[in-house]
């Protein structure tokens, strides 16, 4: 089975997947790209001309600039917070005794398997005007005004951190697992303090995990839909909700397609350049 001489075998084996993908992924993606190059008339619908007008509009219009800027800022904040709390949590998990560790891994990572809609709903219940947050602030005497994080940037950030931080934890956890625990013992025996071991031995070896966790969190935030749609609503649009509105409310599909194509390009550009960076930086160090 292993060293087939028949040159056709691998192509035959991959054919079902490749054909299926070509027809049902390639074609729709190309059609979306083409659609983004047509103009749209509110009375006549999609025109048959070829133009970069949609891209010019998205890039030039301050309304869309603001949405892209907000999305980028959101992704950055969420990533930074996920690093700040996800990395220490992964470290704590790796140091718990095995019995507790498996329980808390389940608690911390389990939400990954629960629908994003459910998890965002939980935050909506917290943030809403009649939610817990208001009750607490009123009870503490911060005024009777209902406090609401609904439709705020802070609210979106908190909910997205909650949705995505398990990805950071699992990624860092996986790279912490690969560390030879004796390398930490070796550093202690050479006179390093606990802090030094953490900073100079453990953290650098966890770096690949932190970086790949960051890229996952960043990319998923930048293209997140459900959480911004529920918490941010119409008032705080991000790229994904803006494209959704162009498609399903305004019905300006070509403009929506242009937004989607830009989102895709940005996403791929960020992932690819980040991976290149990580490879260059770590190829010589880690197997």
């Amino acid at each position: 089975m292993s060293t087939e001489k028949t040159p056709n075998t691998p192509y035959l084996l991959t054919a079902p997947g490749v054909l299926f993908f070509a027809a049902l992924l390639g074609a729709p993606m190309i059609m979306t790209l083409l659609l983004s190059l047509h103009s749209y008339d509110f009375n006549l619908g999609v025109q048959s001309d070829w133009t970069f007008g949609n891209y010019a509009e998205v890039i030039g219009d301050p309304y869309f600039q603001k949405i892209f800027g907000r999305t980028f800022g959101l992704a950055l904040w969420v990533t930074v917070i996920c690093v700040a709390i996800g990395v220490p949590e992964a470290y704590v998990l790796s140091r718990l005794n095995p019995r507790w560790r498996s329980i808390f891994l389940l608690i911390v990572l389990g939400p990954l398997l629960i629908s994003v809609v459910v998890r965002t709903l939980g935050w909506a219940l917290f943030f809403g005007g009649s939610g817990i947050l208001s009750m607490v602030s009123q009870a503490l005497g911060f005024g009777d005004e209902p406090v609401s994080l609904m439709f705020t940037f802070t609210g979106m950030t908190i909910a997205l951190v909650h949705v995505l931080v398990p990805f950071m934890v699992i990624s860092v956890w996986a790279s912490l697992q690969k560390i030879d625990p004796q390398s930490e013992d070796a550093a202690y025996s050479l006179g390093a303090s606990k802090m030094t071991v953490l900073r100079r031995i453990t953290l650098p070896q966890a770096m690949p995990g932190i970086l790949s966790g960051s890229i996952i969190v960043f990319a998923l935030t930048a293209s997140a839909f459900a959480t911004p749609a529920i918490i941010g609503g119409r008032r705080l649009k991000v790229v994904a909700t803006a494209a959704y509105d162009e498609y399903l409310s305004t019905l300006n599909w070509p403009l929506g397609a242009a937004i989607a194509v830009l989102l895709l390009i940005a996403n791929i550009a960020i992932i690819v350049s980040y991976n290149k960076l990580v490879e260059r930086r770590f190829a010589k160090v880690f197997e």
Partner: peptide, 28 residues
Amino acid sequence: PGRELISAFLLSPLMIPHLVLGVAFLQF
């Protein structure tokens, strides 16, 4: 020949935001 390409193609949906897949399928 083409092994890397086929593998990248079959894994590519991981890199495409779900929103983009959604609008592409909607139109298609």
